[in-house]
Amino acid sequence: MTKALALLFALVLVLAIGSLSIGPANLPFADSIRALLAGGDGPLTLVMREIRLPRMLLAVMIGGTLGLAGAAMQGYLRNPLAEPGLLGVSGCAALGAVLAIQTGLSAAFSLALPLSALAGAVIAVLILLVLTGPRGETLTLILGGIAISAIAGALTSLVLNLSPNPFAANEIIFWMMGSLADRSMLHVWLAMPFMIVGLALLAGVGRGLDALTLGEDAAAAMGFDLRMLRLRIVLGTACVVGAGTAVAGSIGFIGLVVPHLLRGTVGGRPGPLLWVSALGGAAMLLSADIAVRLIAPGRDLKLGVLTALVGAPFFLHLVWRSRRQRA
């Protein structure tokens, strides 16, 4: 497991440097890294520090937390089909963003969109917590999340449907596809506090998830407070997914596929899976973000489109393989 962690860490490092060295401005590698580290007044420093660095940082933060939250959700629900979006938080965050675009708020000031998306995420979590109550059965949590997602999806469609302005509708659709293009350090600083809180909440759930391998009753009898565990996972996932969706739009499949892909490297144990999934998620989103820039440099291929396009067939392959194993 430590070997898997070390390899993944190295992979993330290489991809992060790769991400920094790719862009429409064809900059010499050594010069650009020097400009990034040493600074200076030239345009090179500006490109590196204000365009490429935030893009790389957001890919690491969002990919890493999506992988982590996906592993936590799967571990808690003891279901390999669970993913961070299941709570309805990403759907509500998207709705908040869509409303900001539709009402023209986002055009008036640039942070209106992520702030509105974060508000959507917070509302989703509050509804979910009220719905599940202090006892909070797992099934209520799943069904509540599905219902909230459905409502958010319906309202998003309604906004699109009634949109008098085709340009706004177009912008909404493109935003929802998810992208890391043209993000600034401001986006990084906006997402950072939520990511840190989410990370802190999710960091301590590993042992509880290991115990849950034996079911809720056995885990509770081993001294684990399942209510606290659930609260940490719901709030932690909401923080990171809400912040991620707010700054980058909807990016699917990472939280679902990455834990699947890496489960074997940790012998199936849900606790250690958290950290390899975090690194795996960062590596996957960095790769995808590099790929959209290499495949179609001028066309602004959306990140969410690519992750789904690569993720879904890959997922199909996993289903096929596990089907054969079971047979």
């Binding site: 003891r78 849950l212 056995a218 012998g267």
Partner: peptide
């Protein structure tokens, strides 16, 4: 517990 749950393919 009576339900012999083993959620993940651990050794």
């Amino acid at each position: 517990p009576q339900t012999r749950e083993i959620a993940w393919p651990v050794s």
